[in-house]
Amino acid sequence: MDAIHALAAQLRRARHILVLTGAGISAESGIATFRDAQSGLWARFRPEDLATPEAFRRDPGLVWRWYAWRREQVAAAQPNAAHRALVELAQRRTTTLVTQNVDDLHQRAGSTGAICLHGSIMRTVCSVTKLEIAAGWLAAQTGEPPRSPHHADGLARPGVVWFGENLPADALERANAAAKDCDAVLAIGTSALVYPAAGLPALAQRHGAWFAEINPQPTPLTPTADLVVAQAAGLALPAVLAAWEDA
């Protein structure tokens, strides 16, 4: 049995599937990952030097403009075949979708209830209170970034988790609970370098889950996987669904 049919058979037997997605699935829609070279005006900056609280304190305007550019990239991108296949998978089996991505491609594809461990680039929050700032209010403001309506000392900032910040406690708690409950875990397009997200497959395995990885490149998770599909997710996931009835 080839890897695609083996994965289809395992997922078909599953009661609860935990899906963990990383930047690779969005890269297939044209959204650059943090490990890709920057382009245009941003070529001289390292993303790791912009996506930090320290960078925002040092030069909030620079960070605000960089995220505005990234939001434009996200808005121009479209969900791909892998995003759509995960929507269909959730219609066939109970699925918990946990994503490290800050774009909204899963949601635009039709996924509901995604656990966004690293926040959302499409949200804007107060830098002090972390309360969300309405898009309509923002549109009427000036400044890069605008002042926050929630706190006198606050600025508008992207609703993402920066390097050095803690993950949202509720999101992490729900992801860990799903890892402990699932009987199959599927890691898709994640570099497996960023924790605690990268630890979810191991947590699931300790609780008896079967683990498969879909990634054209090997990762630190590859040696621990029960099955590896070394393909792009946009090719592999539709093929898995097509093989479902034959598995």
Rank of each mutant, 00 (worst) to 15 (best):
L41R: 10
L41F: 11
L41M: 07
V240K: 06
P53E: 13
R58G: 06
V128K: 00
L50N: 09
R12V: 12
P47H: 02
H118V: 02
A239Y: 00
W66P: 00
W137H: 11
A175D: 03
A68L: 11
R15D: 15
L11C: 12
P223K: 09
A76C: 08
A135I: 08
T99M: 00
L89Q: 05
R13D: 13
A68C: 02
R12F: 08
A32K: 06
A3G: 11
A169H: 13
G208I: 13
G164L: 15
T222G: 11
N176Q: 14
S120K: 15
Q73A: 08
V125H: 00
M1G: 13
P220K: 00
L97S: 03
G143D: 09
D103A: 11
N176T: 10
L241F: 04
A68D: 07
N101R: 07
A9P: 00
P168G: 12
R65D: 14
A232C: 08
A114T: 13
S39W: 04
G234K: 08
E245H: 05
A135G: 13
G234F: 04
C182A: 07
A202Q: 14
L193T: 10
D104N: 14
I188W: 00
D36G: 12
V160Q: 08
A184S: 15
A81K: 00
W66S: 05
Y67W: 11
E173P: 06
P47Y: 01
E165W: 09
A37R: 14
V74Q: 03
G234Q: 10
V229I: 11
L18W: 01
W69E: 12
A85P: 00
A14M: 08
A134P: 00
I25H: 00
A177T: 04
R108Q: 01
P149K: 13
V240Y: 08
T52D: 15
G136N: 15
E88A: 14
R12A: 13
T124V: 06
H5Y: 12
T142V: 02
C126K: 01
S111W: 03
A75F: 00
G22Q: 05
A184T: 04
E144T: 10
T94K: 11
A85S: 05
A55R: 00
K130C: 15
T142E: 15
T112K: 14
A232W: 01
D246L: 03
A225C: 12
A139N: 06
F34H: 07
L172Y: 08
A204K: 02
H5W: 03
L20C: 06
A169L: 15
N166M: 14
R147Y: 05
A187R: 00
W210G: 07
D170S: 08
I25V: 15
L203D: 06
Q10G: 11
A204L: 01
G208M: 10
N215S: 09
N215I: 10
